[in-house]
C-alpha cells in the first residue's frame, strides 16, 4: 500500500492536451477529458484520483507548466 497520496490540479485553460502527462503517469491517474477548453483542447484531468501517489512525473513532462502536483503522507 502506498505511503503517500497525491493529487494534481490542471490549469485547464492553458492545457494543450498533448497527452504527455497521461503517458508519463505510472499509476494511470490522468486522462484527457472528452470536453474541450476554450481553445478546443482536450485538457487532462484526474480520472482515477485515488491512484495518485504524487510522484510529479506529470508536472515534469508538461511542456506548458500547467500541472501543480500535491503530495501528502498517509496518516497511520
Amino acid at each position: 500500500m502506498a505511503k503517500f497520496r497525491g493529487a494534481i490540479v490542471v490549469d485547464t485553460e492553458s492545457c494543450k492536451g498533448c497527452n504527455l502527462c497521461v503517458v508519463a503517469c505510472p499509476t494511470h491517474v490522468i486522462e484527457l477529458n472528452t470536453d474541450v477548453n476554450g481553445k478546443g483542447y482536450h485538457y487532462s484531468y484526474m480520472k482515477n484520483p485515488t491512484s495518485c501517489i504524487g510522484c510529479a512525473n506529470c508536472g515534469l513532462v508538461c511542456p506548458d507548466s500547467v500541472i501543480t502536483v500535491y503530495k501528502k503522507a498517509i496518516d497511520k
Binding site: R5, G6, A7, V9, P49, G54, A56, G59, L60, S65, I67, T68, V69, Y70, K71, K72, I74, D75
Partner: peptide, 15 residues
C-alpha cells in the same frame, strides 16, 4: 483522505 486534504499549499511538490 479527501482531495481537499491533499490539495493544500504546504503539500505542493511540483508547480
Amino acid at each position: 483522505m479527501e482531495l481537499t486534504d491533499i490539495i493544500k499549499a504546504e503539500n505542493i511538490v511540483s508547480q
